[in-house]
Design a protein around this nucleic acid. Structure first.
Lengths: 116, 116
DNA sequence: TATATTTACTACGGCAAACGTAGTACGACA
DNA sequence: TGTCGTACTACGTTTGCCGTAGTAAATATA
């Protein structure tokens, strides 16, 4: 069975993560669940990929981290909040995706299984 | 102005190049022209990217090279021909693209310029 | 005729994102 | 008591893209 291409997704992990932060701050584990759910189990982001994306994006000013705690317990988590720069970056990435996708599709031939 | 994402294209260069070889063998310079034309100038593949893709794909058995000469002159060129394995690989890559694209698009928000 | 541009590559090294492996630590559950 | 889920961190490898540079022949331009 065909699987997600990690080489294509490579250029989109930042976009995917930022999407998950658009409405409210979140943290690693929750985001990985969101991605799994939203993709209907088709894409499961690797932990190392996720956390390295966080630190890269924080360095670039697209997200900000703060320490919060899980409800009930006093356990700490690192939350991430998207910045204005991050929103701008997300928008640009979406435009870039649309353009790139259109170009790539000129070189893609859908198989004609669907012929009838 | 928005440009092609080389991080997204990264996973697709092999597919793009193989597409150019589907109908007949070709060589580096011609393929780079084909890509530029077919993408309406939006994607210009780097020479190093192209030639390293050739050697990688030849190593993997997706293309075969042979020495031919340009019409008129006795100048030599290296032509590439897609193999059966290469065609299979191309088909798989297309399926993978379609699946990956569908997943990514769940995390993309088109800007609403087009609202009317 | 001299020079620049186009054609057609090869070699080498660097970079960045993804990923494999491993390890830590705490809480819940059985 | 031990396993599973949660919530990470550290470290090193791989892979594909790309910058720079160089070669060389053919063709266009001055």
């Amino acid at each position: 069975m065909t699987e997600i291409s990690s080489d294509v997704i490579r250029g989109c992990n930042d976009t995917i993560i930022l999407y998950c932060l658009l409405s409210e701050p979140s943290y690693g584990y929750e985001i990985s669940k969101m991605i799994k759910t939203k993709s209907e189990g088709k894409y499961i982001i690797k932990e190392t990929t996720l956390y390295s994306a966080f630190s890269r994006m924080e360095k670039n000013g697209y997200v900000e981290s703060y320490s919060g705690e899980a409800e009930g317990s006093g356990k700490k988590r690192t939350y991430y909040r998207i910045t204005d720069e991050g929103r701008k970056y997300y928008t640009e990435k979406c435009e870039e995706w649309t353009l790139t996708k259109e170009v790539i599709e000129r070189f893609i031939e859908e198989n004609s299984n669907g012929n009838y």
